[in-house]
Simulated scan of single mutants.
Amino acid sequence: MTSFPDSAGSSGSQADLGNALAQCLTYAADLPWGSQPTLFALVPTAVLAAQAPGLVDPDDDSALSPVVQETDTDDLEQLLTTVSWPPQVVGCALVTEITLLPPDAEADLDAALEPLLADADAADEAARRAAHAHPDRRTARLAAGVLRNGKRVALLALREGDAQATDLQTHPDLAPNLLDSLAETLHA
Rank of each mutant, 00 (worst) to 15 (best):
R137N: 11
R137E: 04
C92K: 01
A122V: 04
D108A: 12
P53R: 08
A112C: 11
D119I: 08
A46S: 13
D75H: 05
E70T: 13
D57T: 11
A122R: 13
P53C: 06
L109K: 13
L109I: 12
A123C: 09
A105H: 10
E77T: 08
L80C: 08
R128S: 09
A118H: 15
P53T: 06
G54C: 05
G91T: 09
E97V: 08
H134T: 03
E70V: 13
D60H: 04
L79K: 07
D57G: 12
L117I: 09
D124Y: 07
E77P: 03
V47S: 10
S84I: 00
W85I: 04
V89R: 04
T73A: 02
A46M: 04
D61R: 10
T73P: 01
A63N: 06
R138H: 11
Q51S: 08
T96Q: 12
L80N: 06
E114T: 11
A52H: 07
G91M: 05
L64I: 10
L55G: 07
R137P: 00
A107I: 00
P102S: 07
A105T: 09
A93T: 09
L80E: 01
L55C: 03
A49N: 02
L116T: 07
R128W: 12
L117Y: 10
V56Y: 03
P58R: 05
A111C: 00
L117R: 15
T99Y: 00
Q69V: 13
D72Q: 14
A126Y: 13
A118W: 11
H132A: 14
Q69S: 08
C92L: 02
C92Q: 05
I98T: 14
P135R: 10
P87K: 00
T99V: 12
A93W: 05
D75I: 02
D59F: 03
L100K: 09
D124F: 05
E106P: 02
L117V: 10
A107S: 03
P86V: 00
V83N: 01
D74F: 00
T82L: 12
L94E: 03
A112P: 15
E77S: 04
E125T: 05
D110Y: 02
D119W: 09
L48H: 06
T73C: 02
L116Y: 08
R128E: 11
A50H: 12
A133H: 09
T73W: 02
S84G: 10
P87F: 00
D59A: 13
T71L: 14
L80G: 02
A49M: 07
D75K: 00
V47F: 02
L113I: 14
L117Q: 15
T139W: 02
A120P: 08
V68H: 05
I98A: 14
R137M: 01
D124I: 03
V67H: 00
D124P: 04
P135H: 12
D59S: 10
V95T: 14
